[in-house]
Design a protein around this nucleic acid. Structure first.
Length: 112
DNA sequence: GTCCTGACGAGCG
DNA sequence: CCGCTCGCCAGGA
């Protein structure tokens, strides 16, 4: 193995951390929610919830990923109440019946 | 190279 | 319930 200092965080699959995160988020079934930490763990990145938040923050507006199904460990939307991101996420969750209009979420872990 | 920030989490007072 | 600290990692200045 040549001076391969390339590994970084790739899984043996050749799948980057971001790819793993995308895959996990995409696998969250409708009506269910997962925390950043949960997603990180399922993606093979324990203790890296922050990484998940970072990746999601870079998602394009037209992404197909159900990023709105990802909430923090407190079971709440991780955006300042009233912000556009908050409204957008809450809107999607309400649409799926995972949240009430007052911002209260129906907590359901993903538990795969 | 260092420093700061961030869609987090758990612990402590 | 609130606020603070520390750990963790990536990326931009």
């Amino acid at each position: 193995m040549p001076t391969g200092k390339r590994d970084g965080n790739q899984k043996s699959n050749g799948e980057s951390a971001a790819e793993a995160i995308y895959r996990v988020v995409a696998s969250i079934p409708p009506g269910q929610l997962a925390s950043y930490g949960q997603v990180a763990e399922l993606a093979g990145l324990p203790r890296q919830a922050r990484r998940v938040g970072r990746v999601l923050s870079q998602l394009p507006a037209d992404t197909r990923l159900p990023w709105f199904r990802v909430v923090n460990a407190a079971g709440k939307i991780s955006f300042p109440v009233g912000s556009s991101g908050y409204q957008r996420q809450l809107n999607h969750l309400i649409d799926e019946g995972s949240a009430f209009a007052d911002g209260r979420l129906r907590w359901r872990d993903c538990r795969l």
